[in-house]
Design a protein around this nucleic acid. Structure first.
Lengths: 195, 195
DNA sequence: AGATGTAACTTAACAGTGTTAACCTATCAT
DNA sequence: ATGATAGGTTAACACTGTTAAGTTACATCT
């Protein structure tokens, strides 16, 4: 295994265990049994390392979504399954989810904005399904990509309220998520399906 | 003006201008024309200072919401206005919005979780209106507080996608927000209003 | 008036951060 | 053998939050 891969592996472990905020170059170096400066031989700087982690986390999320739908499902089932898989991934991998969605590009000015748009894959996955539903006459939406973003954004809101611990303690997490996801999908279906 | 107030004022300026990440004790001290350690005479530590900023930002948001609805409005109009006021506040004051919603309590372990739940006020404001609608027979929801959280969570998702610059560049921000907010509210009304 | 206490502030320091410059060393091609 | 290069090192810079210790000014009590 190359040192680059080693660094990525140890970084990922630190990230998942302690979160992004506590992931420092020196800690990574110590865990990898190498000097901190060596990391700079393989990554331009901390942002680039973080970006590599983001990219692989996006791939993980992407896989989780794809593996939860099968071609035999009908359009609406696919959408439901993707939504549930998304929420499940987020709640089970909060630290990975956080770097995908909560790290702000303007705080990493050294990197081109396009790099941050790998996440598009995920939106386009859903957009494709919505478009498919339109082609089959099951759904009717003006702009499938924008609709896809709208649904993801709503789902993101729901999980991020949980992850950032902003949900009222009187409300049980599970029930809240369930109701919210239902609401989002039902709202979409009843609105977008011809009567 | 007391030094405490001075520190808060300068911190707020730094926060709004450069964002939370770049707000350091020494910078605040320099701006306030005092030594960095003096801040510790008025705030236990950086987290407590940040918390004071969060609280006043929540008050600002709260005001913005209350000032946008009038008692003469009907229930649905109130909900629509609050949703729009919320989105407007978030997009016009992204740095303040960020500390309200995106700072993670587990990274501030020295503070009791309750402190983070001042934000409840906002949820309860909407919950009250929903309850009012129920009492009048206009709406029918099981748990008005949970419904309130659901709506806010979805709105939060929409604005946070914009603020954290995750929206596809092909999609115009304004149109996206407009469609999403409509979608959230329509979804809520059609589902929760007796047919 | 003189002593005491205390509140508000300071400087110096510690341990940590990302990052760079300079240096070393092994391997490999000419 | 010479020189280049890839991969590593240590030492240092400028920053961070935070604490300990010292200073100064002012109020209160005897």
């Amino acid at each position: 295994m190359s040192l680059r891969e080693d660094i990525l592996k140890e970084s990922r472990e630190l990230l998942v265990k302690d979160g992004f905020g506590k992931m420092s170059m020196r800690k990574i170096a110590r865990k990898t049994d190498v000097s901190a400066t060596s990391i700079y031989l393989h990554f331009q700087n901390k942002d680039e390392l973080l970006l590599a982690l983001i990219e692989s986390s996006i791939a993980n999320l992407s896989d989780a979504l794809e593996n939860n739908i099968s071609d035999s499902d009908d359009t609406i089932t696919k959408i439901e399954r993707m939504a549930n898989a998304f929420v499940e991934f987020a709640l089970e991998n909060p630290q990975e989810y956080e770097i995908i969605y909560m790290v702000r590009p303007e705080e990493m000015p050294r990197f081109p904005k396009e790099k941050f748009e790998q996440i598009r894959k995920i939106y386009e996955l859903l957009a494709g399904i919505i478009q498919e539903g339109c082609d089959k006459g099951i759904l009717k939406v003006e702009n499938s990509l924008m609709t896809s973003y709208t649904i993801w954004a709503q789902l993101h809101g729901v999980v991020s309220v949980i992850i950032s611990k902003r949900l009222d303690t009187r409300i049980p997490n599970g029930e809240f998520v369930h109701q919210a996801v239902d609401h989002i999908i039902q709202g979409f279906i009843t609105q977008k399906t011809p009567a």
